[in-house]
Amino acid sequence: MSNFNVTLDQFSGPLDLMLHLIKDKKLDLFDLQVDVLIDQYILFLDSVENKLEIATEYLYELAALVEYKSKKCLPVDPKPLEVNDYEEDTKDQLVRRLIEYQQFKDISQLLNERFMLRQKQFEKPMEKQLLDIADDENIRFVHADQNDLLKAMQKCLLRFNYTHPSQVKFTKTEMSIDDRSEQMIIMISNLKEPFSFEDMIQDVEDRSLLIVTFLAILELNRRDILEFWVENTEVYFKRGKLYGFDA
């Protein structure tokens, strides 16, 4: 078992991870031992199991690797030509992708150097004075037309959307009195008479449902499905005379 002191965050994707493993295990990219790579890949994903939510992209590549390996594990076909071809294809494809990815990874380092250098260079805004004294008709000198305005506006909106992600609100859908009444008709059929108010609110978890339940009780009482009476400040209920008749 090798120990990984790295995390998924360090890699910008499964190909990046594979390249790291290849380098780490000193594998030859042009004569790639895919089996070794797969084992290392799986080992690594195991070690970052707790990061599964960001590992999904990695699992997708894993599936392809495992398919390749499982095909290799199968007994050799009497007519091995096709199987071998397929294996070569998958492997070649993987190597081709790795090489192409490596190209862009390398070039992005080069680009980053240019970027960092450019970040050290400053420019001056256009003379504000000039804008103040320029005739309106000369404003075109600030080479901008309606399209530029449109683009600028779109850029603004895009940036706005990006910095203000659309809000997601979770709101409770309140149960209607009618729905709650239907529920309660079923519920009270199982209750031993007389039953208490507590019996009828045993499934209530929040205030709004409590209120709806109370209103449903009044409604059921109005429809003679539920009867109640009061004894020593305690409310008692029983099924009303129209219980079971009212659809």
């Binding site: 994707g13 992005s108 380092q109 980053n112 970027f115």
Partner: peptide, 12 residues
């Protein structure tokens, strides 16, 4: 200003 590795790769 910094550009992430992912951003650089995508741009490239």
């Amino acid at each position: 200003r910094q550009l992430s590795q992912s951003a650089l790769e995508t741009l490239a």
